[in-house]
Nucleic acid binder design. Structure first.
Length: 426
RNA sequence: GGGAGCGUGGCGCAGCUGGUUAGCGCACCAGGUUGUGGUCCUGGGGGUCGCGGGUUCGAGUCCCGUCGCUCCUCCCA
C-alpha cells in the first residue's frame, strides 16, 4: 500500500454514509423544532482561543491539540471542540449587540491527538448546541430536553443522564479548598497524576478512575453541597423543571467535566451499549466564557455530542437497518446505437427527477440485467437495434416482472414510471 | 504516556511441531447465452504473507526491531 490514511483518521465509505446523513438530518430536524440556527465556524483558530478558553491545565490543551505555526509564525490550532469558536464568532460579529440571545447549533469535524480506540479517533465529528444570553434555569432544561429529543428521534434507549452542579466562579475556590482539605488527609494514597491535580485543580481528581484513588473519591464531598445561594437555587430549579418535563436524570456529585469553562450545571448522557468511551454527549453552563473571549459578561449553556459513538450505537441495533436507496430505471443496451440512445434518454429522464443508470462497459446483456438487479432497480428497459428501429420498447417492472410497451421518448418512459406509482416522493 | 492482543488477495479467514508452485469463502471479471433477473456450471485476474533485519540448507511459520490496527488504562464526545 503506497499510502494509508493518517493514524486516527479514517474514510467513511459509501456503505456507512447513509448512517451519517440520517443522523445529520435528525440533528437538523430537532434543531428546527427547538429553533436553533446553524453556525459554521472555521476548523482552525488561534491557539490562544482554545488554550485560554478550555483551560491551560486541561488534558485537551496540554497534550491533545494539533498546533502548528503558519507561514508567518502565528500559532494556529485545529479545533478540539467548537464551543470556543462559536463564542468567538458570537463576540466577533457583534451578535450580542444585534440580538444578545442566540440559539445556535453546529455539526463538523474536531481534532484531538489521542490514542485511537473504539469510539475515539483523532479526527472525529461532533454536533452541538449553544444557547447564549440567558442564565435562566429553564434554558439549561431546554438544552437537556433537546438532547433527549434527539435520542428519542433516533430510537435510542438504555441511556441515562448524569447531572451535577459545580457552582460559579466564586464557589470554585471554596470548593477547591474543601476538596484539598479532604484529600490532604491521605495524600500518599493518591496516584501521581492526582498529586499534580491536587495542586493544579483538585476538581480533576474526581474524574480519576485509578483504583487507589477511588475510595478517597467516594468519600469526597460533592460540589452540589457547597454552592452559594444563587447556584443552589439554580440547581434546584433545573431539577424541578426536569421533573416537570419527565426527563430522567441521576445527580452524580462526582461528575466534573474536562474543560475549565464550565460553571453551575454540568451533564453527560451515557450509553450502556458502548465500551470504555460511553459518553454520547456532554455539556453544561459556561457563564464566564463569553467575557473571557472578549465579550460582555454573558451566561450560556450548551452541549456537544460525538457522532461516531452515536453511529456505533445505531449500528449495534439491528432494528435500525439502513435500506439502500433504489434506482428508478436501468437501461440495458445492445450495440453502439442502443448505447447512444440510452445515454440520451438517461439525460432527459434524470432532468425529470428519475434516477437512471446504464452500462458503460459493453457487458453482456445478461450481466447488465444482473447488475440492474443488484442495484435494486425498479424498472428495466432493454434498448437494442430492434427498439431503436421501432422507437418503442418493453418497460419491465422488476418486482412484479410485468412488462408494458412504451415509446422510447423521455415522456413515454417517465409517464409510465410516474403514473404507475413506482417512483415515490417527488 | 502505560498495558495486552493481532497484522496472510478488496472483505472474512485457514495454513499442524519451519519443508516444494501460499489455499478457502465472499466479492470482482469472463464464458455457458448479443435479447432478459437473485440460482447453477466452468474458467480467470488479483497476495513482495505490514515493513526491516536476524537465525536456518530452507521462514507466512522462530527471534529482534519498526509501523499499523484493536481493546484496556488515562481522558473525553
Amino acid at each position: 500500500m503506497a499510502y494509508g490514511s493518517v493514524r486516527g483518521m479514517r474514510d467513511i465509505l459509501p456503505e456507512e454514509t447513509p448512517y451519517w446523513t440520517r443522523l445529520e438530518m435528525g440533528i437538523r430536524e430537532v434543531a428546527r423544532l427547538y429553533n436553533y440556527r446553524e453556525i459554521r465556524p472555521p476548523l482552525v483558530e488561534q491557539t490562544d482561543l482554545f488554550s485560554r478558553g478550555i483551560g491551560e491545565a486541561t488534558d485537551v490543551v496540554t497534550k491533545e491539540m494539533y498546533t502548528f505555526p503558519d507561514k508567518k509564525g502565528r500559532s494556529l490550532t485545529l479545533r478540539p471542540e467548537a464551543t470556543a469558536s462559536v463564542v468567538r464568532a458570537y463576540v466577533e460579529h457583534g451578535l450580542h449587540i444585534r440580538e444578545p440571545f442566540q440559539k445556535l447549533y453546529y455539526i463538523g469535524p474536531m481534532f484531538r491527538y489521542e490514542k485511537p480506540q473504539k469510539g475515539r479517533s483523532r479526527q472525529f465529528h461532533q454536533y452541538g448546541v449553544e444557547a447564549i444570553g440567558s442564565i435562566d434555569p429553564t434554558l439549561d432544561v431546554e438544552v437537556i430536553s433537546f438532547a433527549w429529543e434527539l435520542m428519542n428521534s433516533l430510537g435510542l434507549s438504555g441511556l441515562s443522564l448524569r447531572l451535577n452542579s459545580i457552582g460559579c466562579a466564586a464557589d470554585h475556590p471554596r470548593y477547591r479548598e474543601v476538596l484539598q482539605d479532604h484529600f490532604s488527609r491521605n495524600l500518599d494514597s493518591l496516584c501521581t497524576d492526582c498529586l499534580r491535580r491536587y495542586e493544579e485543580n483538585p476538581l480533576r481528581i474526581l474524574d480519576c478512575k485509578n483504583a487507589t484513588c477511588r475510595s478517597q473519591i467516594e468519600a469526597a464531598p460533592g460540589s452540589a453541597d457547597h454552592l452559594c445561594k444563587d447556584c443552589a437555587d439554580h440547581f434546584a430549579a433545573v431539577r424541578e423543571h426536569l421533573d416537570r418535563l419527565h426527563l430522567s436524570y441521576t445527580v452524580d456529585p462526582r461528575l466534573v467535566r474536562g474543560l475549565d469553562y464550565y460553571t453551575r450545571t454540568v451533564f453527560e448522557l451515557v450509553s450502556a451499549d458502548l465500551g470504555a468511551q460511553d459518553a454520547l454527549l456532554g455539556g453544561g453552563r459556561y457563564d464566564d466564557l463569553v467575557k473571557m473571549v472578549g465579550g460582555p459578561a454573558t451566561p450560556a449553556v450548551g452541549f456537544a455530542g460525538g457522532m461516531e459513538r452515536l453511529i456505533l450505537v445505531l449500528q449495534g441495533k439491528s432494528a435500525t437497518t439502513m435500506e439502500k436507496p433504489r434506482l428508478d430505471l436501468f437501461l440495458a443496451t445492445l450495440g453502439e446505437g442502443g448505447r447512444a440512445l440510452a445515454l440520451e434518454l438517461a439525460k432527459s429522464l434524470r432532468s425529470r427527477r428519475i434516477s437512471v443508470d446504464l452500462d458503460y462497459r459493453g457487458r453482456a446483456l445478461r450481466k447488465q440485467i444482473s447488475q440492474a438487479n443488484r442495484l435494486g432497480t425498479r424498472y428495466l428497459l432493454v434498448i437494442g437495434d430492434d427498439e431503436t428501429a421501432a422507437g418503442k420498447g418493453r418497460l419491465k417492472e422488476m418486482d412484479s416482472g410485468e412488462e408494458c410497451e412504451v415509446a422510447l421518448t423521455p415522456t413515454g418512459i417517465s409517464e409510465t414510471i410516474l403514473i404507475s406509482g413506482g417512483k415515490d416522493g417527488t
